[in-house]
Each structure stands twice: as structure tokens, then as C-alpha cells.
């Protein structure tokens, strides 16, 4: 049976996490089909046909799918479900919002945030903020899965040659309505797919000091992240939060600056290739996971780092 991947897209671009989801799907079997739902989706279907290993792209272009409201999207997924053995979406706020709704309508227990496909019915996933990994086998006929994008390489975005099939909408249930959004949209790379991430914590002391990190990030072509404490204190926007209940990142290089290293933070960055910590407290738990630790006052170390990167 075929496998369906839900394409996440925003403002005419496919979300990078979708490509990792395709890779996870390719470990389950084939053919892999994709669903593009949205309103005035423009070039997204064509771009999706080029993703490697996708054979067909279903396109539901209809007003009720604007802004990806779960109440309208879930019935569409349910309607398609009988043709598939697995339905996958990225474990982003998009996927986390819609997939459980579809799963419940299908009477299926979703498998959240998988990091490994063990076999077509068995998956590995983190629990307890990644302090344990559970291998679970699903007995449901159809498997609804969200995928942790950092655990799977991105599938190639070109080289594919899928066909497009238009499908009709399932209607607007009128339960919810999009009003507005306030997106942080920065010039820097996207946090979850950036090669380098520079994150600040409560030790940054003030919102204005985050510009020190931004300078370093700009020189390195890095994304900027934050701990929960830094977000709560208003130093950084909510979408910068890295951790168990924020974003999961696994860049080549993660720099934790003025971050103590609580397990909830580690849950979101422990799989980074190289971890650097700058903290004035040599006992800070972050040093237990850091490849390179520097015990220093960040207000001296970060400007010095910045100048050394000239």
C-alpha cells in the first residue's frame, strides 16, 4: 500500500522538515505520495513533484485549507486515509496540530516524533525529554506518524518526477477562523535546519544583549536560539525556544551561551554534532554535554569571539 506525506508549506515554500519526513517515509516502503492542501498554493505542487521518491502529488486547493486549520484539514486526511498504510507529517507545530485530530477521527493512536523506523510497524521515539527512548509497535491498521526532522536527512528536493492529481475539498466546517499572524521572519537561516545555532539563556540578562549573539550568528551564517528562561524574560521571541517543548535542533555546531543546561533544554540540542558552552559557572550542567567548554563571563567572551571571527 502507498504511503502519504503531508507537505507543510508557508508563503510559497515547502518547509524543510517536510523533506526529512519524506526520508522517513522512504524507509517504510513505496510508492510515496504527497498531499498539498492549501489555498492558492501556486508553485507548491510543482515543487513537490520534484522531491525525490515521491510518485504522485495530490493537490487540494480550496479556501477551507488556507492557514492549515486543523478542523478542516483533518477530514481531508481522513477521506484519503483508506488508500494508505502510513500517513506522515513533520513534528512541527503544523503537524502536531493536525495529525492527532485526524488520528482520533480514524480511531488510531498516533506515533509522535519518531526518530527511527525500525520496521514498517515499529518505531523509536523519545520520551521524558529524550532521557529515554521507547521502541513501540503499532497494532493499528493505518499508522499516523509525526517525524522529528533532525533525526532524518533531508530528501533531495530535485530529481523526482511525480504526477499531479487534483482533488476536491471537504468543505469549511466553520469551527475556527484565522485572524492574523506575527511572524518573526528573519534573514538568518531557519532554526531547525541551520548548520550552526547560537543560543542565549538567562545569563544574557537583557533583550538588548541578544544583539551580541546576532553579530556572532551573522558572521557564522548561523540561526539564533534561546532557552525558555530567555524567552520567558522577553529577551527573545517564542519561536527561538530550543528544548523539550520548543524546537529540536541538531546542527553541526551549537553554541550555548549563558545557558545552564536543564534537561528540558538539552532535550532540544543534545544531538548537535559539536556543542560549545560559554558559562561563568564551571559546575553548570551544560558542560557535561559540551565538546568545548569555556568558563568565562559571556560579556567578555562573546565580544572577543566576535572580533576573532572578523
Amino acid at each position: 500500500m502507498a504511503i502519504l506525506v503531508i507537505i507543510e508549506h508557508h508563503n510559497g515554500a515547502i518547509a524543510p522538515a517536510t523533506l526529512s519526513t519524506v526520508t522517513a517515509a522512504s524507509k517504510l516502503g513505496e510508492p510515496i505520495e504527497a498531499l498539498v492542501a492549501g489555498h492558492e498554493v501556486k508553485n507548491i505542487p510543482e515543487t513537490s513533484t520534484e522531491i525525490k521518491s515521491i510518485s504522485k502529488v495530490l493537490v487540494a486547493d480550496s479556501g477551507e485549507y488556507a492557514h492549515s486549520l486543523a478542523e478542516n484539514l483533518a477530514p481531508l486526511i481522513v477521506q484519503l486515509a483508506e488508500n494508505y498504510s502510513h500517513i506522515l507529517a513533520p513534528a512541527t507545530t503544523f503537524g502536531k496540530n493536525i495529525m492527532p485530530r485526524a488520528a482520533a477521527l480514524l480511531d488510531v493512536m498516533q506515533i509522535s516524533d519518531i526518530v527511527e523506523v525500525v520496521s514498517p510497524d515499529t518505531f523509536k521515539r523519545p520520551i521524558y525529554a529524550g532521557n529515554a527512548f521507547a521502541t513501540v509497535q503499532s497494532m493499528d491498521r493505518i499508522k499516523l506518524i509525526t517525524v522529528r526532522s533532525t533525526a532524518f536527512e533531508a530528501s533531495e528536493a530535485s530529481g523526482g518526477s511525480a504526477v499531479i492529481e487534483k482533488i476536491s475539498g471537504t468543505g469549511n466546517l466553520g469551527l475556527s477562523e484565522f485572524k492574523s499572524s506575527e511572524l518573526s521572519g528573519s534573514e538568518r537561516p531557519e532554526l531547525t535546519s541551520a548548520g550552526i545555532v547560537v543560543s542565549g539563556g538567562r545569563g544574557m540578562q537583557d533583550k538588548s544583549h541578544f544583539s551580541m549573539l546576532e553579530n556572532v550568528a551573522d558572521k557564522l551564517g548561523a540561526a539564533v536560539g534561546a532557552s525558555r528562561a530567555a524567552v520567558d524574560a522577553g529577551f527573545a521571541p517564542n519561536d527561538y525556544q530550543v528544548g523539550q517543548t520548543g524546537k529540536v535542533v541538531a546542527p553541526e555546531l551549537y553554541m550555548a551561551i549563558g545557558i545552564s543546561g536543564a534537561i528540558q533544554h538539552l532535550a532540544g540540542m543534545k544531538d548537535s554534532k559539536v556543542i560549545v558552552a560559554i558559562n561563568k559557572d564551571e559546575e553548570a550542567p551544560i558542560f557535561q554535554v559540551a565538546d568545548y567548554g569555556l568558563v568565562a563571563d559571556l560579556f567578555e567572551a562573546v565580544p572577543e569571539l566576535n572580533s576573532k571571527l572578523e
Binding site: 529515554a132 527512548f133 521507547a134 521502541t135 513501540v136 509497535q137 543534545k270 564551571e282 558542560f287 554535554v289
Partner: peptide, 20 residues
């Protein structure tokens, strides 16, 4: 339950790093 838990494991430990 619809999922059967085959096993629960510890995560792989990171190798200790160095202080610069």
C-alpha cells in the same frame, strides 16, 4: 493499548568534552 512497548532504553551518552 494500540501500541505495544517493545523496549525502553537509555539514550546514547555523549562523550565527555574538554575545557578550553
Amino acid at each position: 493499548p494500540r501500541l505495544s512497548v517493545i523496549k525502553v532504553e537509555e539514550p546514547a551518552a555523549r562523550e565527555a568534552g574538554i575545557k578550553v
